[in-house]
C-alpha cells in the first residue's frame, strides 16, 4: 500500500521534472542576450572608471554593488534562473540571505575597526 503511495509521489515528482524541462525550452532572442552583454560591458567600464575616483570608504562598497548586479544579470539571463521553478529560486534566495548575513556581520568588524 505504502509503495503505491511512494510511486504516486515519484510520479508527481517526475511530472514536476518534466514541467521544468519544458520550462527550459524557452527561446530567448539574441537581442536580449546582446543587451545583457552590453549591460555587463558597461558595468565593467563603470567599475574601472570608479576605481580611478577617490571615494574613500565607499570604494569597496561601490565595486561590490556593481559586481553583485553583474552576477545577478548573468544568473538571471544566461543561467536561466528566470525560467526556473519557484523552489529553485527560493533556495537561491536562502543562500543569498545566508551569504549576506555572513557578509554584514563580518563587515560590522571591518568597517568599524
Amino acid at each position: 500500500m505504502s509503495e503505491q503511495i511512494y510511486s504516486q509521489e515519484q510520479a508527481s515528482g517526475a511530472q514536476a521534472a518534466h514541467h521544468t524541462e519544458g520550462g527550459h525550452a524557452h527561446i530567448t532572442g539574441y537581442g536580449t542576450y546582446i543587451l545583457v552583454w552590453l549591460g555587463l560591458v558597461a558595468l565593467t567600464a563603470v567599475t574601472v572608471t570608479v576605481a580611478g575616483i577617490h571615494l574613500g570608504s565607499l570604494t569597496l562598497i561601490t565595486a561590490l554593488v556593481i559586481a553583485a548586479v553583474k552576477t545577478s544579470l548573468v544568473g538571471y539571463h544566461f543561467m536561466h534562473i528566470k525560467y526556473d521553478n519557484a523552489i529553485t529560486k527560493i533556495f537561491i534566495l536562502v543562500c543569498i540571505v545566508i551569504f549576506l548575513t555572513f557578509w554584514i556581520l563580518t563587515f560590522s568588524d571591518l568597517s568599524f575597526r
Binding site: L105, S108, S111, F112
Partner: peptide
C-alpha cells in the same frame, strides 16, 4: 561566531 574573537583586534561595534 565573533565571540571567539573578542581579543583578536576586532572592532568594538562588532
Amino acid at each position: 561566531w565573533g565571540h571567539h574573537m573578542f581579543v583578536s583586534g576586532m572592532s568594538d561595534a562588532s
